[in-house]
Design a protein around this nucleic acid. Structure first.
Length: 202
DNA sequence: GGACTCTATGACATTACTGT
DNA sequence: ACAGTAATGTCATAGAGTCC
């Protein structure tokens, strides 16, 4: 997980408040960059920013809380207030982390339980309720988008893509790709037109 | 023709989901 | 928390296409 820590100059900061916001929709380093820049532009100090969370310090006489909320909304993020939504959002980010940054030797369910210190049954139920799809489905949709990216890059053979994506053999990849997209990997490559879905829209 | 890659499919195993 | 069910993964195998 990526975290930016900005330099904090706490002296001379009279009449300021520090507030933490839990934010829905932050899934990549670009999200961090955009929000960091936009919030700083208001004059607020971004004390800490990481996927799903931002801590800012601001002078309420100069900057209203509603302006901060507006900046977050304008950038297509959403502030989340209840505990279950926060946990569901955290689950989403750990799924992405699992798929992108681990060798996937550990089972996803075990990985999520460990990282989020919750049993998988609970996480599964909260996730389905929050997003209308299961953890498993979400993981597969992410995987398929990643596979599309690798196909478009054209640097790896389909067998190599299967290996990179953690499949034991190419047939599993082939079967799943067709099931999800309705076309074979070869057909997808041949159409030559990107049909990828941004992962924040999945 | 042989080697290799890719796709497809059936049988079975494993994992995840859901209702209680 | 658990059990039954659904979904997904693995393995083995076969056939088509391509390249040398």
């Amino acid at each position: 997980m990526i975290t930016y820590h900005n330099h904090i100059n706490s002296s001379r900061e009279m009449n300021s408040v520090t507030q933490e916001f839990k934010i829905k929709g932050m899934i990549c380093s670009r999200c961090l960059k955009v929000l960091n820049t936009e919030l700083k532009a208001t004059g607020a100090k971004v004390i800490e920013i990481q996927l799903g969370k931002v801590v800012i310090q601001y002078n309420p006489d100069k900057i209203s809380k509603s302006l901060i909320e507006q900046i977050i909304k304008e950038n297509e993020f959403e502030i989340i207030w209840d505990g279950e939504s926060i946990l569901a959002e955290q689950t989403k980010r750990w799924i992405i982390n699992y798929l992108w940054n681990t060798d996937q030797q550990e089972k996803l369910s075990d990985y999520l339980s460990k990282q989020l210190r919750n049993n998988y049954d609970h996480l599964s139920k909260i996730f389905s309720k929050a997003f209308g799809k299961t953890i498993e489905r979400y993981g597969i949709l992410l995987k398929v988008e990643r596979i599309k990216e690798l196909i478009e890059n054209g640097e790896l053979s389909f067998s190599e893509i299967a290996y990179v994506m953690g499949y034991q053999n190419p047939s599993a990849l082939s079967r799943q790709f067709k099931r999800e997209t309705g076309m074979t990997m070869k057909e997808y490559k041949n159409i030559g037109v990107s049909r990828r879905i941004p992962i924040d829209k999945i």
